[in-house]
Design a protein around this nucleic acid. Structure first.
Lengths: 211, 211
DNA sequence: TGTACATCAGTGAACGCGCGTTCACTGATGTAC
DNA sequence: TGTACATCAGTGAACGCGCGTTCACTGATGTAC
């Protein structure tokens, strides 16, 4: 599919509205209105709403994949023996996420939401797709995580990793809503970077917790 | 509202289908079909779909809050100063959650999924409704949480609470699937009680983390 | 060169469908006199 | 006691609406001869 101006504007509008309202709550009419294109253009260029959603995913999955892989490359470069502290690992992740700007940041939130859904829907083919897509990175990550937590038994490591994943996925995917709640209750608002810097010691302490 | 058989069956079906498909993806027709009742019965008994969603949450939260309140009443008799450690609080939480519905873990997973959806989807009205509906209990819990974390600034406390909530919601809503993955990878499986006992120190250490 | 045709992005209006909701209605049960 | 009325859970069909999708169409550009 050639990326005409119309196609790009549809993808931009769809990505923004999907992130804000969810998929089924976002109509093609709202997307095409925001994009300033004709309603029929979505079905002309993408075929269906479902195909549009997949196209939006495809476009943002690529840079996210590169970010993860880049983080792992970095770990292995700075510590060739593969031994990092959990704080070093989390620190680099936080800095990598904080370095993601603008539209890609929203893409990250969408991906985290997708990650939660992928775990939730045990039978969905979406989960299998993600599992295959990120299998190599997951395994590289687990080697580093294992080296960072030599005192944990395998099953403790497994569960603490998922406790951490759950906290991070929830926080990142609901970042905008949570910040809105904070503003509602405290009349002030952290930046997303502030939240990440609060999250980091929480997770590290949890991983290091006495049993 | 008298809880006729019809009302109960609508709530049962709605709870299950909302958790499986989300709120807007679940039609009143699918709910009433699964419940074996007339389509119009939802609007007759509840007034609207929105009110049905709130009723599903209320039905689950009422016994939950009663159990929390009962546990805290009992605790205050033993420790009249009313200052609990975060470990003691989490202990009560874990036991109250596990005790809901007479140990019906499936409903617990469903509710945690609903909670995640409530944050995730455009259901901001739900959070406010629940907060108002159970204002006394909610504020009592927040006072205890505040007393348990005297060294945290309000915004740190807010975020660490939600980090904790995210971890717990993810773990509990995906409990079955995570345990299946564990069995797949380690050829052995924790009980759900084991997982809760692993989660508790993880969360407590995160809450207590140095900044 | 001009002419005829092909291709393709984009359009305007309409289509059928499923949605939440509404409303007049039924039938069972309770109550007053 | 019988009769008339009230209450209420539940029903069947229809309503209007917004949805994704479809289709005949336009107009610009490319191409063959």
């Amino acid at each position: 599919m050639a990326h005409s101006d119309t196609v790009t504007r549809i993808l931009d509008a769809a990505e923004e509205l999907f992130a804000e309202h969810g998929f089924s709550e976002t109509s093609l009419r709202s997307i095409t209105t925001q994009a300033g294109v004709n309603l029929a253009a979505v079905n002309y260029h993408f075929g269906s709403k479902k195909a549009l959603i997949q196209a939006v995913f495809s476009r943002y999955l690529s840079p996210f994949y590169k970010m993860i892989a880049g983080s792992l490359d970095h770990y292995e470069k700075i510590k060739p023996d593969g031994v990092l502290s959990i704080e070093e690992m989390l620190g680099y992740f936080v800095r990598a996420i904080a370095g993601v700007s603008g539209g890609d940041r929203r893409r990250l939130a969408i991906f985290m939401r997708l990650l939660g859904l992928a775990y939730n829907q045990g039978q969905g083919h979406l989960r299998k797709y993600l599992q295959n897509e990120y299998k190599t990175d997951y395994e590289r990550l687990m080697v580093l995580f294992t080296n960072a937590t030599p005192d944990l038994k395998p099953e403790e490591r497994f569960w603490r990793f998922h406790f951490m994943l759950g906290s991070a996925a929830f926080t990142l995917s609901n970042m905008e809503h949570l910040r809105a709640i904070q503003k509602d209750e405290f009349n002030e608002q952290c930046t997303e970077e502030d939240v990440l810097e609060l999250l980091q010691p929480f997770l590290a302490a949890g991983i290091r917790a006495a049993k």
